[in-house]
Design a protein around this nucleic acid. Structure first.
Lengths: 211, 211
DNA sequence: GTGGAACTTTTCAGCGACTGTAAGTAAGGT
DNA sequence: ACCTTACTTACAGTCGCTGAAAAGTTCCAC
C-alpha cells in the first residue's frame, strides 16, 4: 500500500496517464463514449494514438480503471473480517459502506460513470468481463478461508453469489439515483433490501419459492 | 414448441442460415475463431458479407446461437417444477440432466464449442453478455413465482445465484473433459460436487467460512 | 396472370478500434 | 560522456461493422 519514492521516470508516466484519462473523461461526458474516437483523445492529451493504447489496453479501460482497486478492497475485507463471522459478513459490510457513500457523496460523482456505461454496449461488455475476472480472483481466497479442496464447486459458487449480491445492490442504487430518487431515500431502502438479501443467503434457499 | 408448416420463404431462409453457420463452424474448427474473417465465411457459404450480418447480428453469434434455446428450457423447468419443491430443485435437475449428457454424448460434440470459446477473448465477452441477459430474463420469472415486490433485490440475487451454480458445473465439466479426464469419471464426481453446492445454497451460508 | 408493394440481397464506400514495425528520443546506470 | 533500456511516434495495414442505394425476389390483391 506504501508509495515508494518515485524517480523522474515514474512521475512522468503517472502524469501522462492521468492527462490521458482526464482528457478522455472530459470528452466522454460531453459526447458519450461511442461518439469519441481514440484519435480525438490522443489529440486532446497531446499524445500519439499508440501511446493511449500503451497506457490503457483498450478504449474501455479509460472509463473502468478503478476495477483493480475494488478487487483489492474486497480481498482485504475478506481476509480481515471480524472473528467468529462467516464470509457473508465482509460482503454485507462492503455493501453498507457503499450505501453510506450513496447517502453522502455528491450525486454527480456517483452516477457519472454508470451513466456512461449504461449508454454504451461496448462498455457494458467490458464491465461483465471485469466482473467475471473479479470472481475468479475472489475464488481462491474464499477456497483458502474455507479450506476447500482443489476443484470444489463450493468456493466458485460462494464467490459468485456474494459478489453478485453486492453488485446488484450497487446497480439498484445508481439506477434509482439516475431515476431522480432522493439519495437518503435510496440509501435507506437499499440498506433494508440488501440486508434481507444477505439474510436469505445466510438462512438458505430451501424454502425459497416453495409452492 | 410446435413447428408450423413453413412456406417456401421460411424454408429458404432457414436453409441459408444453416449453410452459413455450417460453413463458419467448419472454418472456425480448422483455424480458430479470430483467424477467420467474415469475408471468408461469406465466400465459403457463397453469400455476401452483408448477408452474414443479416442472419447473425455479430460474428460471435455464429458460434453462440443456442443461447436462447437454453434460456427457454430454464424458464420451462422453473414453471413446471414438481409441487412442494423450492426454486433450487429445477436448477439442480438442469445440472443433473447436463451431467447425463456429459456421460453419454460423444466427446467431440461436448467440447467443440467450449474449446473455441476458451481460445477467443471476443467469444468469451459475448458469452458473458449472454449470461447476464439470461439472468435478466430469469429474474421476473422468479419474482413472479415467489410473489416478490417490484424492486426487491431477492429475486435478482436468487436468479444469479442459481444460474451461476449451473454454469459453474457446466464449466467445470468441459474443462476437465478438455483436460483428458474420462467422461464417466467427470460426470460422477461433478454429480457429487454439484449436489453439495446446491445443498450449501439450500442450507445457507450462515456458517460458511466462520473462523 | 399481371402490377405493384414489401422484403432480401448485393454492392460500394467508409469509419474506427487495434496491431506490427521501425525509427527516434529520453532516462538511468556506469 | 557512453551505452543500455524503455517509451514514444509515425506509418501502413487488417478487420469488424455500418449505412445507403440499387437490384433482385417473393407475396398478394384483383
Amino acid at each position: 500500500m506504501e508509495r515508494e519514492p518515485e524517480g523522474l521516470r515514474e512521475r512522468k508516466k503517472r502524469q501522462t496517464r492521468e492527462t490521458i484519462a482526464a482528457a478522455a473523461m472530459r470528452l466522454f461526458k460531453r459526447r458519450g463514449f461511442d461518439a469519441v474516437t481514440v484519435a480525438e483523445i490522443a489529440a486532446a492529451a497531446d499524445v500519439s494514438e499508440k501511446t493511449v493504447f500503451n497506457y490503457f489496453p483498450s478504449k474501455e479501460d479509460l472509463v473502468l480503471s478503478e476495477g483493480p482497486a475494488r478487487r483489492a478492497a474486497a480481498i482485504d475485507a475478506i481476509r480481515n473480517r471480524p472473528p467468529g463471522t462467516s464470509l457473508v459478513q465482509p460482503f454485507r459490510e462492503l455493501t453498507m459502506a457503499y450505501l453510506d457513500r450513496v447517502e453522502h457523496e455528491p450525486l454527480e460523482s456517483l452516477v457519472e460513470i454508470p451513466r456512461l456505461v449504461l449508454a454504451s454496449r461496448a462498455l457494458q461488455q467490458r464491465l461483465f468481463v471485469g466482473w467475471e475476472e473479479e470472481s475468479a480472483v475472489l475464488t481462491p481466497v474464499i477456497a483458502e478461508e474455507t479450506g476447500a479442496a482443489e476443484g470444489d464447486l463450493e468456493p466458485l459458487v460462494a464467490a459468485r453469489t456474494l459478489a453478485w449480491t453486492h453488485r446488484l445492490a450497487f446497480r439498484a442504487a445508481f439506477l434509482r439515483l439516475l431515476d431522480g430518487e432522493d439519495q437518503r431515500e435510496v440509501a435507506a431502502d437499499l440498506r433494508r433490501q440488501a440486508n434481507r438479501a444477505y439474510d436469505l443467503l445466510e438462512n438458505g434457499l430451501a424454502e425459497y419459492g416453495t409452492r
